[in-house]
Design a protein around this nucleic acid. Structure first.
Length: 647
RNA sequence: GCCCAUAUAGCUCAGUCGGUAGAGCACUCCCUUGGUAAGGGAGAGGCCAUUGGUUCGAGUCCAGUUAUGGGCACCA
């Protein structure tokens, strides 16, 4: 019996018996064999140690590919499980997949692991790698597997097997004395894992991801194809930590949190300036896009929330007040019911549609304590909210208009890498399928019209309608979901909204909920991390710092400051008795976009030395030119503004 | 909400075996007027998150609470 395998380059290797992936790799080259982690046989990933029984098209998968790395990480999880079982035999294993940047394994045991035990497990993992144990695949009978795992007290593994489909082939991987249920494939031996891994953290995690189940002990680790990659990853973590908006918020004196108001921000003057600048910008953009701005009450009677359905669905996350003994008032977690009241306040004609109401409303949500995270997840925040009342046939046009707005805003704010997620009908929903058809088609058409990438999230829509979600990628490659467009086929009806159509009858409008930035608080957090704290000129709380070299220049500095201030430039003056290098250092650390440096010669010649953030270059300008340039920059739209922080 | 960790000066952090709290930066004052990332000196600043317990004695050990962080669950 002979087997021919065809390689990626079209060449063929012939064997007179079923070959192993390892042999094929070896025939191609030693270095490839060294990097190989699996082989792709007619499209399926297969162990390097498994014979290839018949002719096939094959491709060696190496550790430096996406798939190879996943496999490597999965192996790391197995080695971790082996280490845990050796050290703590009473611990039960459950599941251990590869994840982005690494892997984890969930264990069941009475007491959580301690940080010391984490270290011991990592040491043991290195021993297991050094032992270079063969990893052997075996096919077992279903009953045999259940009895085996039950016999050794592995209840979770037993349950996993019991829940597998009847016809599933049960495969077992054996490495040393450790035997685990696994689909595979795996490396030929533990030695191939290499040294580029590290256990990183301990966490609790619910069995099967369900909070009503017991909590397991999760051990996270990271693993890479080589030590260079591991180091690069650890460096990247450090970089992300430096950009952490919580650190920057403190350092740049933007905001703080304190115990008395968990999840709510104390905005300092500089932080609030940035927020207000963002709001001003968004206000101009939405007015330009055909919205009118409204404002609705922060607290409204419980009955309204019952009518809207919020009380039942989200009541547990709403703050309430019983100051008035006779009624319960609730803080708004969303602005939409208020917007509907404005729509309902008088009879509406179809001629008014689409009616676009924008609201920069502050909402309060009682988020679970464990969910709070700096500015990213808070209990009260300002939304750049908007509600459009329209007819079914207007959904497409309105959606396109909104997608256009989102694109412009994101581009203005410096985000060019954007994609859209389209969430269509969930199994449980309200409304006829025909109107879902219309709504989904409208959103999809609008998404396509943007020319941006979009992906389908099947069944992820809200019960009241499908939605688009706008995701942007920041400077260090992280994705943030910010904008959203949701069609609501439910709320207008629930709150009795209607308009008089051409046929003189009452019709229920469709409501579009939409936000571009989402929450101003969170978006500023994203901007801070994106820019590593160095906000662009138009957004910087302090745009210009005037620093003197000698006190003889003080009067001149104050004159320049006054002139710039009159032209709308946000600035500070540093007349302190300090050396100029000291001042430069300090204001550079505060990431002020422009420093104007004044010494004796500037004062005498009525010039200004300009130093922009991120560069050491100095520029000497006349007094009037400086004022004019900076005044123009301060008045300009964000995108075209004085780009000072991109050297 | 659940699991784990953490909480010391405005900030970043040290504090051994339980014996009355320390550094650097920032701040105030003095000297220095110096040309592009830290000039020098002096001073002030702490109910060691909070409540209780153990102890002759607690920043330190134990328990509760709160907040924060990392995860899980949640995210209208």
């Amino acid at each position: 019996m002979s087997v021919d395998v065809t390689l990626k380059d079209g060449s063929v290797q012939s064997f007179d018996r079923p070959p192993f992936g390892l042999e094929i790799a070896d025939n191609i080259g030693k270095s490839l064999a060294k990097k190989a982690v699996a082989i792709r046989v007619n499209g399926d990933l297969v162990d390097l140690t498994r014979p290839i029984e018949r002719d096939a098209i094959v491709e060696i998968v190496t550790r430096d590919t996406r798939e190879g790395l996943d496999l490597l990480r999965h192996d790391a999880a197995h080695v971790l499980a082996e280490a845990a079982k050796e050290l703590f035999p009473e611990t039960q294993v459950t599941i251990g997949p590869s994840v982005e940047n690494g892997f984890y394994y969930d264990f069941a045991r009475d007491a959580p692991f301690t940080p010391e035990e984490l270290e011991r497990m990592e040491e043991r993992m290195r021993e297991i790698v050094n032992r270079d144990e063969q990893i052997v695949r075996e096919v077992w009978g279903r009953q045999e597997a259940i009895e085996y795992f039950r016999g050794i007290g592995e209840e979770y593994k037993t349950r996993i097997i019991e829940d597998l489909p009847r016809d599933e082939v049960i495969t077992i991987y054996r490495q040393g004395d450790f035997v685990d249920l696994c689909r595979g494939p795996h490396l030929p031996s533990t030695g191939r894992l290499g040294k580029a891994f590290k256990l990183t953290k301990l966490a609790g995690a619910y069995w099967r991801g369900d909070s009503s189940n017991e909590m397991l002990q999760r051990v996270y680790g990271t693993a890479w194809s080589g030590e260079k990659e591991l180091k690069a990853y650890l460096r990247q973590l450090e970089e992300a930590e430096k950009r952490d908006h919580r650190r920057l918020g403190k350092h740049l004196d933007l905001f703080h949190f304190q115990e008395e108001a968990p999840g709510s921000v104390f905005w300092h003057p500089k932080g609030w300036t940035a927020i207000q600048t963002l709001i001003r910008y968004m206000r101009a953009k939405v007015l330009e896009s055909g919205y009118e701005e409204v404002n609705t009450p922060d607290m409204m009677d419980r009955s309204l929330w019952e009518a809207s359905g919020h009380w039942e669905a989200f009541g547990e996350n709403m703050f309430t007040s019983d100051t008035d003994k006779d009624r319960t008032l609730a803080m708004k977690p969303m602005n939409c019911p208020g917007a509907v009241q404005i729509f309902n306040n008088r009879l509406r004609s179809y001629r008014e549609l689409p009616l676009r109401l924008a609201e920069f409303g502050k909402v309060h949500r009682f988020e679970p304590s464990g969910a709070l995270l700096g500015l990213m997840r808070v209990r009260s925040f300002i939304q750049d909210d908007g509600h459009t009342f329209c007819t079914e046939s207007q959904i497409t046009g309105e959606s396109k208009r909104f997608c256009q707005l989102v694109r412009e805003v994101y581009r203005d704010l410096g985000f060019d890498d954007i994609h859209i997620k389209f969430a269509d009908r969930p199994p449980k929903r309200v409304g006829d399928d025909s109107i879902w058809d219309t709504a989904e088609k409208a959103l999809e058409e609008a998404a396509i019209a943007t020319g941006l990438d979009y992906t389908l999230n099947p069944g992820e829509g809200a019960f009241y309608g499908p939605k688009l979600e706008f995701v942007l990628r920041d400077a260090i490659g992280r994705d943030w979901q910010c904008g959203t467009l949701q069609v609501d086929l439910n709320l207008p009806h629930r709150l009795g909204a209607y308009y008089i159509a051409e046929d003189s009858d009452k019709h229920t409008p469709v409501l579009l909920h939409r936000a571009v930035l989402g929450s101003f608080e969170r978006f500023l957090g994203i901007l801070l991390e994106h820019h590593a704290g160095a906000l662009p000129f138009w957004l910087a709380p302090v745009q210009v710092m005037i620093a003197t070299i000698v006190s003889d220049a003080d009067d001149y500095a104050l004159e320049l400051a006054e002139s710039l201030r009159l032209h709308g430039v946000r600035l500070d003056v540093d007349l302190r008795n300090e050396k100029i290098s000291y001042k430069v250092r300090e204001h550079s650390e505060m990431k002020v976009p422009v420093m104007l440096i004044l010494g004796r010669s500037e004062a005498e010649e009525r010039t200004v030395t300009v130093r922009r953030f991120g560069t050491k270059k100095q520029e000497n300008l006349a007094f009037d030119d400086t004022v004019e340039t900076l005044a123009r920059a301060a008045g300009e739209a964000p995108r075209s503004a004085f780009r000072t922080n991109t050297p």
